[in-house]
Design a binder for these strands. Structure first.
Lengths: 217, 217
DNA sequence: ACTCAACTTGACCGTGTGGTCATCTTCTCT
DNA sequence: AGAGAAGATGACCACACGGTCAAGTTGAGT
């Protein structure tokens, strides 16, 4: 059983880290997070062995929250609006958190908690997508993996403008969603990514500097 | 008139920086670039006052190249394929260059050369988009700014998988492009960004740490 | 109140960064 | 060939980072 101040500090740290990561992205310093939590830098490392570990904890929670929403939406009556709401939530999560996309690609792919959460996210996305597909709401050649990847698309389309136009990502979500409809589907030249691709990408992301020696040409 | 070795070194530096930025993104060190160019670190600062300046030079060139292609495509017979080729080129540029998106949002928005190039890019995008719109190839509510922003979208959708699926961005380009067609247009809840929004965003990007003091609340 | 383990602290370390500058080298002009 | 300026060089600086740890503080059980 941990001491009372220890649990309190741990929670403060998680809150502070969450806010700082959202505001400034992955590159926030541990010192900043500690300052915001009102503790010394050393305390951070008492609770989390490395910065990566702290980030993984927070990132895992975020993804888990999205998964929970997805599970709820599977019971929704209208598959199309369920999928749209799922995408909205996923994009909103990233739009309000500068660290999210970076974390998704860079760090924490190696962390088992994050890996597990990501897998569950893929599953629920696949379920929601399948339901929408069966209902004829979206085209046949779009998969759950596509949907998750398109979160990034809408967020990053709006990203260059920052907070200048607050809900701009909604514009691109709808634009992209219109492209998912069966009635305007044209042939796509590249197949959807598979689970194997994702695990391969995670393996590559795990090694810190990719292909360092093979580029001097 | 500069000395012969100076011009040679300058070119080596631009080449090296271009390659290193593409391979590793904005965070490559000056030391790495210098090493690749075969010069000492100090030489870099003889030619470019700051790292930001070096990046702006390269980034400006890239954008200018895209503008040049856009100008050519304005003469193209088919407005739809012209727009698609423009988007393909813009996305490919980013897909092959890790620094591109970062540079677009972060640094160099303050640099006058980059600002000028971006403005010309917006203009040619608007022209190509207008032509496609008039030809009925794309929906009426999509602007040139949308098109440029959607470059990011396709690139970033494919980004999490890295090089695992080489041409994956083509998949999302086509998916997004299908959403631009008039026949599947639904109402979009947010208006297109205006030029004013862009300049405001550039102003915000100019200050290095945004709103440092207003968040401790 | 006393004790002691659990916890916090902040000085400290190694490393890497962008940038500077006195010194030396090398190109170019006569 | 000689001179002088233009340019290359790498040791150096200040700083920021993630992470460590001996010493000090504090919560909890008695």
């Amino acid at each position: 059983m941990p001491r009372a101040d220890a649990t309190r500090n741990r929670q403060s740290l998680l809150d502070a880290a969450s806010a700082e990561l959202a505001a400034h992205g992955l590159e926030v310093s541990i010192a900043r997070i500690a300052a915001r939590a009102g503790v010394a830098k050393g305390t951070v490392f008492n609770h989390f062995p490395t910065k990566e570990d702290l980030v993984a904890e927070i990132f895992g929670d975020r993804v888990a929250g999205l998964v929970a929403l997805g599970e709820q939406l599977r019971e929704e009556a209208d598959p199309e609006s369920a999928l749209l709401r799922f995408m909205t939530a996923g994009i909103e999560l990233q739009a309000n958190d500068r660290s999210f996309c970076e974390a998704a690609t860079a760090i924490s792919r190696a962390d088992p908690r994050v890996r597990a959460a990501s897998e569950r996210l893929a599953q629920v996305a696949e379920a929601l997508t399948g339901r929408a597909r069966d209902a004829g709401a979206i085209r046949a050649d779009v998969t759950g993996h596509d949907i998750v990847l398109l979160f990034n698309a809408a967020v990053q389309a709006a990203a260059p403008l920052g907070d200048t136009v607050p809900g701009l990502w909604r514009r691109y979500l709808h634009l992209i969603f219109d492209g998912l409809r069966p009635e305007c589907a044209r042939e796509i030249p590249v197949a959807a990514p598979t689970t194997g691709d994702f695990t391969a990408a995670a393996r590559n992301a795990a090694r810190p500097v990719p292909a360092q020696g093979s580029e001097q040409g």
